[in-house]
């Protein structure tokens, strides 16, 4: 079995399995802790609060924005760029249609693809540099956080290097790194892609009952 075959075949299915099972397992264990009830008389509906919190946290809290310009710029550039690339890059759309049998949708044009990659790259680099250079993040970041940054960076970098789709080894490299990322995902803080919902809900519910706009 060649490397290409291994990466396209067994490793891909293994990564897919680890990715989905890992995520499911992690969410199940989190929820299995159960929720401590609250007997106090609510001022307002906790449910409204949790729905509110889910969306309100996409914007910086009032008065905080001016202190976290870099986080905001980097965070938004990276995340928006990442999702645009994941969902609308032409090779990705083709991939979903081919390997996951999803109906193909309209990908973005090449120039937009490249532009978005650039922005996502700047975002990721800003976030990563902040993580390394800011004393706060340097103190609280774990090896796992750095590993997540490096892996994400490598995946995006290899994707960009394989942009021409001219050289099979580059595609295989990108694919391999994606698989590594998928296997790493459920074990890492990359899981925040899912847990952020739970966390915001919990906070929103708690403060929603108290009538505090979260």
């Amino acid at each position: 079995m060649t490397v290409t075959e291994f990466v396209d075949g067994p490793l891909w299915y293994f990564a897919l399995a680890v990715f989905f099972l890992g995520i499911a397992w992690r969410l199940v264990v989190i929820l299995a802790n159960g929720w401590r009830g609250d007997l106090s008389r609510p001022r307002r509906s906790g449910l409204t609060g949790s729905v509110r919190a889910l969306f309100s946290r996409f914007a910086p809290a009032p008065g905080i924005g001016r202190r976290i310009g870099l986080h905001l710029t980097g965070g938004y550039l990276f995340h928006l760029g990442l999702f645009a690339l994941l969902l609308f890059a032409a090779p990705h759309v083709a991939f979903y249609a081919e390997r996951l049998s999803l109906p193909a949708w309209q990908p973005m044009p090449h120039w937009a693809f490249v532009l978005v990659s650039e922005l996502a790259f700047i975002g990721l680099m800003l976030l990563w540099l902040n993580r390394v250079l800011n004393p706060v993040t340097r103190l609280i970041s774990s090896t796992g956080d750095h590993l997540s940054s490096i892996l994400t960076f490598l995946v995006m970098l290899s994707g960009c290097l394989a942009l021409e789709q001219a050289h099979e080894p580059l595609r295989v490299l990108h694919f391999f790194l994606v698989e590594v990322l998928m296997i790493y995902f459920p074990f890492s803080s990359l899981m925040h892609a899912f847990t952020f919902v739970l966390s915001r809900e919990a906070l929103g519910y708690r403060y929603g009952r108290r009538g505090v706009p979260v």
Binding site: R26, V29, I30, L31, A32, N33, G34, W35, R36, H71, G75, N130, R131, N134, V136, T137, I140, S141, S142, D145, S189, M191, H192, T195, F196, L198, S199, R200, E201, A202, L203, Y205, R206
Partner: peptide, 14 residues
């Protein structure tokens, strides 16, 4: 579950 999701959701952004 709430505390667990809080701890799980933190990305150490500072």
């Amino acid at each position: 579950a709430g505390v667990a999701s809080h701890l799980e959701a933190c990305v150490h952004c500072g």
